[in-house]
């Protein structure tokens, strides 16, 4: 004798819509986590003077910035969207002379990992949040 009990739906835990909802929930959560982890921030330049943060400059417009140690003018920086360069650098130790302008010769920097350095002025400029990164992690140069 067969019982004739209908088993078609009573043991089905998920309906089609439950599954779709579940998948959307998981995908949404994953996207949210991914966005938080990997979303690029806007590009900016960090200017260090004597090892301390002097200014953080957003790289979102054409502008000029001057760097001073106290009242002493040291350097002019120019920005354009996504990039920064030094256009002039003095030498605070020997103010009557210019330096050999390595910082100016560096030109525009726009990639994460690139730097503008003025050793006589103890200024370091580097980018953060840039879209591209340099191929290298560090650079070896003459000592």
């Amino acid at each position: 004798m067969k019982s004739g009990k209908n088993t078609n739906t009573s043991h089905k835990i998920f309906s089609k819509w439950d599954l779709i909802l579940l998948i959307f929930l998981i995908l949404g959560f994953g996207l949210w986590i991914g966005f938080r982890q990997f979303a690029p921030s806007a590009a900016k330049a960090v200017v260090l003077l004597d090892g301390k943060v002097y200014e953080v400059i957003p790289l979102d417009k054409n502008a000029y910035y001057k760097v001073y140690r106290g009242d002493t003018y040291l350097m002019t920086l120019e920005t354009k969207p996504g990039a920064i360069r030094a256009t002039y650098s003095t030498n605070w130790i020997f103010p009557q002379t210019e330096t050999n302008q390595v910082s100016v010769a560096t030109g525009w920097i726009s990639k994460e990992g690139e730097t503008i350095i003025s050793v006589p002025n103890k200024i370091v400029v580097y980018t953060e949040g840039a879209k591209e990164r340099t191929t290298y992690d560090a650079m070896t140069f003459q000592n």
Partner: peptide, 13 residues
Amino acid sequence: WIIGIQNPRGNPN
């Protein structure tokens, strides 16, 4: 770590 060698006749980056 990838270390770049500065081009002796190029700019520092």
